[in-house]
Nucleic acid binder design. Structure first.
Lengths: 239, 239
DNA sequence: GAGTAACTGTGTCTCGCGGACACTGTTCAT
DNA sequence: ATGAACAGTGTCCGCGAGACACAGTTACTC
């Protein structure tokens, strides 16, 4: 594992490793990552295998190992390739507007590539673009009296929320999808056990869709952050 | 998949399916799930295979299929077995205190069984205990003027936050663990590219540990919810 | 210009995985 | 007593990641 971490870091961050002798490589990390993304977009992350990715490029499975140490690193490259560039800082914009745009863009990324949710669980090394998303939150919160730890924690808070919403959106899925059936099963279960889950049954029985889940949580979080910032920037003397 | 959903629902919720003829089953869903949890606790979710679980019970792999339709269902049972009962409603306690306790208990669950993070990604059918966690949040927020959708969204918000923190905690890991090495690699990377991630580098350079990440985010969320509840329970006439 | 070291892509092999299926042995209802 | 329903086993298949040895290709060095 210790070596694997270094391998991943070198692949995502390192110098492109310029060799001179031998035949020119026909493939490239970019093409391989793109092929992996194509498979994952079409059939999900579970369908991504060395064989399938190689076949899509008209190559043998083993040739991929000339470029990528293993599947873990391939997926890391796929993530880095699929994730968008974070939205531009928007000079002069208020922190709240910046973070709102940030969250919406991130949510759109997850919608475009639902498998990102599967690929970004567990400890791993982030790529440059992924880290840039974190940077944007911390930068947007600079200068309001928050400590470094608090700014980082805010980023985790926001990212966790967007992630949760994306997961929920995936569970609902488009109408007629296999995911929609799971949701229907859940509704049936709750309704049948309404005595054990009275609050849940009541909440689900109310009309009105919850398509606003992203903005709802976002507004709560930002309200909470605003309250903290107010306290920090207008330090009333402790009574 | 449509049938698979029904299978899972029957296993998690359904009647225990009482047959009468034939030999008594030696195993039980509970024992199988417990064995799976044991493997996952020790070696992670990736190490859970039919073979390993069966071997731990001194049985053949195929005998498990007499009890469980497939690995998906096994993992669903493991989740339901590993997750704690949500904390008791605490009669008369304020919603804020209830939700705080809720979040802390949930975080403790993730700490005890880190593989729960891996097992609870993607669309799936929740078990009774898992659903009870959701019920507690919605119930705690009953009667403050929030709509059903808002109460549900609040639950997703809270769960997402706890999840994010648990994931972060796992990425840090205990000292000397393989995960800690990943974190060290991240620190090195940020420091080396401080020009591209100035805010991040500055935030990480500040002293003070961020062990308070769970409570920090929790306080922000609850502050935000409190503000909304205030607005709803003291409805100032619209100007 | 010849030799050789470095490199690319391939074919073959192993091991572990999930799961299908046929089979033996056991138990209970009739 | 008999036969249906059920429990556990053994064997088989396809697919997955990856190790390894190999042949073909290229560029540096003498």
């Amino acid at each position: 594992m210790g070596e694997a971490a270094n391998d991943t870091v070198r692949l995502l961050w390192g110098p492109p490793a310029k060799p001179t002798r031998g035949p020119k490589p026909t493939l490239s990390l970019e093409r391989i990552a793109a092929a992996g993304v194509e498979v994952a977009d079409a059939e999900g992350l579970g369908a991504v295998s060395m064989q399938k990715v190689a076949a899509l490029l008209d190559f043998t499975k083993m040739s991929l190992y000339r470029y990528v140490p293993g599947k873990t690193e391939l997926i890391a490259l796929m993530v880095e390739s699929a994730v968008d560039e974070p939205p531009a800082p928007a000079e002069g914009a208020h922190w709240r507007g910046q973070l709102t745009a940030w969250a919406h863009h991130l949510a759109a990324s997850f919608t475009r590539h639902p498998w990102l949710l599967d690929a970004t669980v567990g400890p791993r090394v982030p790529g440059p673009k992924e880290l840039a998303w974190l940077e944007r939150v911390v930068a947007a919160l600079d200068g309001y009296g928050l400590t470094g730890a608090e700014r980082m924690d805010s980023a985790v808070l926001l990212a966790g929320h967007v992630r949760g919403i994306a997961e929920q959106a995936r569970a609902v899925g488009p109408n007629g999808s296999p995911e929609a059936e799971l949701l229907a099963a859940l509704g049936t279960v709750v309704h049948r056990h309404a005595d054990r889950y009275p609050a849940l049954a009541a909440a689900m029985a109310e009309p009105g869709g919850h398509d606003q889940a992203l903005d709802f949580g976002l507004d709560r979080i930002l309200d909470g952050l605003a309250a903290l910032i107010d306290r920090r920037t207008e330090p009333r003397p402790p009574r």
